[in-house]
Protein backbone atom coordinates (compact mmCIF):
# COMPACT_ATOMS: atom_id res chain seq x y z
CA UNK A 1 0.00 0.00 0.00
CA UNK A 2 2.84 2.33 0.89
CA UNK A 3 4.57 1.69 -2.37
CA UNK A 4 1.36 2.34 -4.33
CA UNK A 5 0.89 5.53 -2.34
CA UNK A 6 4.39 6.82 -2.94
CA UNK A 7 4.20 5.97 -6.65
CA UNK A 8 0.90 7.81 -7.08
CA UNK A 9 2.12 10.82 -5.18
CA UNK A 10 5.25 11.03 -7.31
CA UNK A 11 3.36 10.77 -10.60
CA UNK A 12 2.52 13.73 -12.79
CA UNK A 13 -1.00 13.57 -14.34
CA UNK A 14 0.46 13.48 -17.85
CA UNK A 15 2.55 10.40 -16.96
CA UNK A 16 -0.63 8.32 -16.99
CA UNK A 17 -1.65 9.47 -20.46
CA UNK A 18 1.88 9.03 -21.80
CA UNK A 19 1.75 5.38 -20.74
CA UNK A 20 -1.19 4.59 -23.03
CA UNK A 21 -0.73 3.12 -26.52
CA UNK A 22 -0.21 5.80 -29.15
CA UNK A 23 -3.61 5.33 -30.80
CA UNK A 24 -5.32 6.22 -27.51
CA UNK A 25 -2.76 8.74 -26.29
CA UNK A 26 -2.87 10.84 -29.46
CA UNK A 27 -6.65 11.12 -29.41
CA UNK A 28 -6.64 12.11 -25.75
CA UNK A 29 -3.93 14.70 -26.39
CA UNK A 30 -5.98 16.10 -29.26
CA UNK A 31 -8.96 16.49 -26.93
CA UNK A 32 -6.73 18.08 -24.28
CA UNK A 33 -5.46 20.56 -26.86
CA UNK A 34 -9.09 21.55 -27.47
CA UNK A 35 -9.45 22.36 -23.81
CA UNK A 36 -11.11 19.22 -22.47
CA UNK A 37 -10.34 18.16 -18.92
CA UNK A 38 -9.35 14.57 -18.09
CA UNK A 39 -12.79 14.16 -16.56
CA UNK A 40 -14.50 15.45 -19.72
CA UNK A 41 -12.48 13.10 -21.87
CA UNK A 42 -13.38 10.08 -19.74
CA UNK A 43 -17.09 10.94 -20.08
CA UNK A 44 -16.69 11.44 -23.81
CA UNK A 45 -14.68 8.26 -24.30
CA UNK A 46 -17.25 5.98 -22.76
CA UNK A 47 -20.11 7.50 -24.75
CA UNK A 48 -18.15 7.75 -28.01
CA UNK A 49 -19.71 7.30 -31.39
CA UNK A 50 -19.65 9.00 -34.76
CA UNK A 51 -22.24 11.74 -35.01
CA UNK A 52 -25.37 11.07 -37.04
CA UNK A 53 -24.39 7.49 -37.72
CA UNK A 54 -26.60 4.48 -37.08
CA UNK A 55 -24.18 1.65 -36.31
CA UNK A 56 -24.75 -1.50 -38.33
CA UNK A 57 -23.93 -4.17 -35.86
CA UNK A 58 -26.95 -6.30 -35.05
CA UNK A 59 -26.77 -5.23 -31.42
CA UNK A 60 -27.58 -1.68 -32.49
CA UNK A 61 -25.93 1.34 -30.95
CA UNK A 62 -24.21 0.94 -27.59
CA UNK A 63 -26.78 1.70 -24.94
CA UNK A 64 -26.05 4.75 -22.80
CA UNK A 65 -25.01 3.79 -19.32
CA UNK A 66 -24.59 7.01 -17.37
CA UNK A 67 -23.77 5.06 -14.23
CA UNK A 68 -20.82 3.20 -15.74
CA UNK A 69 -18.21 5.87 -15.12
CA UNK A 70 -19.37 6.38 -11.56
CA UNK A 71 -19.22 2.64 -10.98
CA UNK A 72 -15.69 2.55 -12.37
CA UNK A 73 -14.70 5.52 -10.22
CA UNK A 74 -16.01 3.66 -7.17
CA UNK A 75 -13.96 0.58 -8.00
CA UNK A 76 -10.80 2.65 -8.51
CA UNK A 77 -11.42 4.19 -5.11
CA UNK A 78 -11.92 0.73 -3.60
CA UNK A 79 -8.74 -0.51 -5.25
CA UNK A 80 -6.57 2.39 -4.15
CA UNK A 81 -8.09 2.96 -0.73
CA UNK A 82 -7.62 -0.52 0.64
CA UNK A 83 -10.84 -2.45 -0.02
CA UNK A 84 -10.23 -6.07 0.95
CA UNK A 85 -11.58 -7.46 -2.31
CA UNK A 86 -8.53 -6.02 -4.08
CA UNK A 87 -5.94 -7.23 -1.52
CA UNK A 88 -4.62 -9.90 -3.86
CA UNK A 89 -4.46 -7.54 -6.84
CA UNK A 90 -2.64 -4.87 -4.85
CA UNK A 91 -0.12 -7.44 -3.60
CA UNK A 92 0.52 -8.57 -7.17
CA UNK A 93 0.96 -4.99 -8.29
CA UNK A 94 3.50 -4.32 -5.56
CA UNK A 95 5.22 -7.69 -6.04
CA UNK A 96 5.68 -6.83 -9.71
CA UNK A 97 8.05 -4.17 -8.51
CA UNK A 98 7.74 -2.30 -11.78
CA UNK A 99 6.79 1.17 -10.88
CA UNK A 100 6.01 2.07 -14.41
CA UNK A 101 2.74 3.65 -15.29
CA UNK A 102 1.78 1.20 -18.02
CA UNK A 103 2.22 -1.74 -15.64
CA UNK A 104 0.17 0.04 -13.02
CA UNK A 105 -2.70 0.82 -15.43
CA UNK A 106 -2.70 -2.69 -16.82
CA UNK A 107 -2.69 -4.29 -13.35
CA UNK A 108 -5.55 -2.13 -12.13
CA UNK A 109 -7.56 -2.71 -15.32
CA UNK A 110 -7.29 -6.48 -15.05
CA UNK A 111 -8.28 -6.39 -11.36
CA UNK A 112 -11.24 -4.05 -11.79
CA UNK A 113 -12.67 -5.30 -15.12
CA UNK A 114 -14.75 -8.16 -13.66
CA UNK A 115 -16.43 -5.79 -11.21
CA UNK A 116 -17.60 -3.30 -13.82
CA UNK A 117 -18.60 -5.71 -16.59
CA UNK A 118 -16.14 -4.57 -19.22
CA UNK A 119 -12.91 -5.79 -20.75
CA UNK A 120 -9.66 -4.58 -19.19
CA UNK A 121 -8.67 -3.31 -22.65
CA UNK A 122 -11.79 -1.12 -22.73
CA UNK A 123 -11.34 0.40 -19.27
CA UNK A 124 -7.54 0.91 -19.34
CA UNK A 125 -7.67 4.42 -20.88
CA UNK A 126 -10.49 5.38 -18.50
CA UNK A 127 -8.39 4.30 -15.53
CA UNK A 128 -5.46 6.31 -16.86
CA UNK A 129 -7.71 9.36 -17.22
CA UNK A 130 -9.06 8.97 -13.71
CA UNK A 131 -5.60 8.51 -12.22
CA UNK A 132 -4.63 11.70 -14.03
CA UNK A 133 -7.54 13.51 -12.37
CA UNK A 134 -6.29 12.42 -8.95
CA UNK A 135 -3.03 14.15 -9.71
CA UNK A 136 -0.26 14.43 -7.17
CA UNK A 137 -2.45 14.52 -4.11
CA UNK A 138 -1.78 12.49 -1.00
CA UNK A 139 -3.60 9.19 -1.42
CA UNK A 140 -4.62 9.27 2.22
CA UNK A 141 -6.23 12.66 1.74
CA UNK A 142 -7.92 11.56 -1.48
CA UNK A 143 -9.34 8.41 0.12
CA UNK A 144 -10.53 10.40 3.11
CA UNK A 145 -12.31 12.89 0.87
CA UNK A 146 -13.88 10.30 -1.44
Amino acid sequence: MNSIMSFLEASEPDNWIAALPSYQRNTILEMRARGASYEDIASTWIAAGASNTAPFSTGGPPQPDPGFLEKLRGEIRAYLCGDKKYDKDRKQLIAGGKEIHAFFISGMSVGIAPFVGASSIVIAPLIALMLATIGKVSLNAWCANS
Binding site: I46, A48, S119, I121, V122
Partner: peptide, 10 residues
Protein backbone atom coordinates in the same frame (compact mmCIF):
# COMPACT_ATOMS: atom_id res chain seq x y z
CA UNK B 1 -9.90 -11.81 -27.25
CA UNK B 2 -9.85 -8.05 -27.42
CA UNK B 3 -6.39 -6.63 -28.13
CA UNK B 4 -7.06 -2.98 -28.95
CA UNK B 5 -10.18 -0.84 -28.63
CA UNK B 6 -10.80 2.63 -30.00
CA UNK B 7 -14.39 3.83 -29.54
CA UNK B 8 -13.59 7.29 -30.95
CA UNK B 9 -12.70 5.85 -34.36
CA UNK B 10 -15.01 2.86 -33.94
Amino acid sequence: ELVAFDPIHD
